[in-house]
Design a protein around this nucleic acid. Structure first.
Length: 507
RNA sequence: CGGGAUGUAGCGCAGUCCGGUUAGCGCGCUCGGUUCGGGACCGAGAAGUCGGAGGUUCGAAUCCUCUCAUCCCGACCA
């Protein structure tokens, strides 16, 4: 193989970001496209990341009073039709089940048969089917709040798909809650967005902006949609989670009513909120580099790869017994409440091959053990956040504290790095020409990485939002909660505005 | 649904324009050996109904017709 190759991933980010993204997934062996159009196969390394996401989030949901349940994958078409905006929003991306069995066609093949009297929609989201249950579960104000979460797969028949970012089938969680008052439902909507933001920060090392979607970007059927938006390394925005205040819309269409404290029947107030396997896409695009995946330690499937190095059979034995003993010790470790997992890699490959294998998978730490180390009771240790050949010798006695401290430091380092990147690529823009220049690539055929987030004034008119989207493919990602009242003029039409919103190109 | 392209071994491709013994190459895989502290090397081997159907021809991966699938660009995408 070429010895001059500088990076494990070709092309590098600057050359072709989209292709780099695909190659990182492939090199880390996280997932692949399935034979089924638009659907992915999540492989063990990728799925383990999802399981870690699930575990951490599930604990947070539980701690905020939610309980898990499970509802059908099929939604009768009639349920779906009850909420007009909702239908319209999802109609074009539904998979529909119309038949219930297969029959021999007499030519060695099969034909569909048993047409259903009412087609089923494969859930693209479960408000309507869960609403049908909730209508039965709620009868009194004493039944409220009802706080339910479901871990599930859903199907949205997208035209163009990309691994983890937009697939026809994906995994997610969807929280669905019912409340007595508008204020309580609003509070829940905000609370769960906070949970997402906290999770993104503490586990994914992903800084996010919390805010509200504009009318055109909100969830079909919602009164208000809140979101967390993150910046990827190509300076585009990725919507990483949403929390919806549904008002009484779905309560009315599903018949979720309760008898209030003064004996009257009232429609309840509902919310829904979700994050998906898209978070893995966010993780990749926020942190990974030209040598492959970079994983924040708290979400990594494994934390330390031990790579034994030897020449002869005697050396092999000596090094392996040393390595196994070390593995046994390190397995006891944890950091920030996360158990440390070790990979002892004794495959019959050259040490550099094994090193690169783990670099590409984003394992946070690599330990090399050879005869020289055994003699000195030390190991060579390398960090994924440093250059591949940047290694240091550490005494075995120091390893436990070194590992847990370093993992914590790396976790924090990745967050800070992402935060600095976002801040460096966010600017206030008040001049329309500058705004247009900012979002116009110099090379239109092969656009370079450009743009970023712009904090600009917006008058609130959907026409201006539409205009900018059409001209530049730039949309309003959100109206940030922390936006200050400030007089200015709309970046598009120049009319009066009293706040800035976040504009960006997005996934 | 519009525009463009591609289907040849597990993966990536050449060969197709101009039809001709046994369809090649790289990676990967299997076996044997030498290696191993920065992506090793040598030798041997297995693996293909050339997307499918039909046609032209003595002869088709190659030409013709039809068809299926996939990818890219648009449209679409909480």
């Amino acid at each position: 193989m070429s010895k001059n190759k500088q990076t494990a991933i070709v092309p590098i980010r600057e050359e072709n970001y989209a292709e780099w993204y695909q190659q990182v997934i492939k090199a880390a062996d996280m997932a692949e496209n399935s034979e089924v159009r638009g659907c992915m196969v999540i492989k063990p390394w990728g799925y383990a990341i999802w399981e870690n996401i699930q575990r951490a989030l599930d604990t947070m949901f539980r701690e905020t009073g939610h309980r898990n349940a499970y509802f059908p994958i099929f939604i009768p078409k009639s349920y779906f039709e009850k909420e007009a905006e909702h239908v319209e929003g999802f109609a074009k991306e539904c998979a529909i089940v119309t038949h219930s069995r297969l029959e021999n066609d007499g030519q060695g093949g099969l034909k569909v048969a048993g047409e259903l009297t009412e087609p089923y929609i494969v859930r693209p989201t479960s408000e309507t089917i869960i609403g049908a249950s909730f209508a039965k579960w709620v009868s009194s104000y004493r039944d409220l709040p009802l706080l339910i979460n479901q871990w599930a797969n859903i199907v949205r028949w997208e035209m163009r798909t990309r691994l983890f970012l937009r697939t026809a089938e994906f995994l997610w969680q969807e929280g669905h809650t019912v409340h007595e008052t508008e204020a309580e439902a609003m509070e829940e909507t905000r609370k769960m967005l906070d949970v997402y933001a906290t999770f993104a920060k503490e586990y994914l090392a992903l800084p996010v902006i919390q805010g509200e979607k504009t009318e055109s970007e909100k969830f079909p059927g919602a009164v208000t949609t809140y979101c967390i938006e993150a910046m990827m390394q190509d300076k585009k925005a990725l919507q990483s989670g949403t929390s919806h205040f549904l008002g009484q819309n779905f309560a009315k269409s599903s018949g979720i009513k309760y008898q209030s404290r003064n004996g009257e029947f009232e429609y309840a107030w509902t919310t829904s909120w979700g994050v998906s396997t898209r978070l893995i896409g966010a993780l990749i695009m926020a942190h990974s580099d030209d040598n492959g995946l970079v994983l924040p330690p708290k979400i990594a499937p494994s934390h330390v790869a031990i790579i034994p190095i030897y020449r002869s059979e005697e050396e092999h034995e000596a090094v392996m017994s040393f390595a196994k003993e070390l593995e046994g010790k390190l397995k006891q470790l944890s950091f920030e409440g996360v158990k440390v997992y070790i990979e002892l890699d004794d495959r019959d490959l050259t040490s550099s091959e094994r090193n690169w294998y783990w670099i590409k998978r984003g394992i946070p730490l690599r330990i090399e053990i050879g005869p020289r180390d055994i003699a000195q009771n030390t190991v060579m240790i390398a960090r994924r956040d440093k250059e591949p050949r940047d290694k240091e010798s550490i005494a075995v006695d120091m390893l436990p504290s070194y590992i847990s401290e370093t993992l914590s430091a790396m976790q924090e380092g990745y967050y800070q790095r992402a935060l600095v990147f976002r801040e460096e690529n966010t600017k206030n823009i008040d001049d329309k020409d500058e705004f247009y220049r900012h979002y116009t690539p110099k090379n239109s055929k092969q656009p370079e990485i450009h743009g970023g987030f712009a904090n600009s004034h917006w008058c609130g008119d959907a026409a201006c939002e539409e205009q900018i989207k059409n001209d530049l493919k730039v949309s309003i990602r959100c109206i940030p909660f922390d936006a200050k009242e400030e007089k200015g003029s709309c970046i598009c039409c120049g009319k009066e505005s009293n706040r800035r919103v976040i504009f960006a190109k997005s996934y």
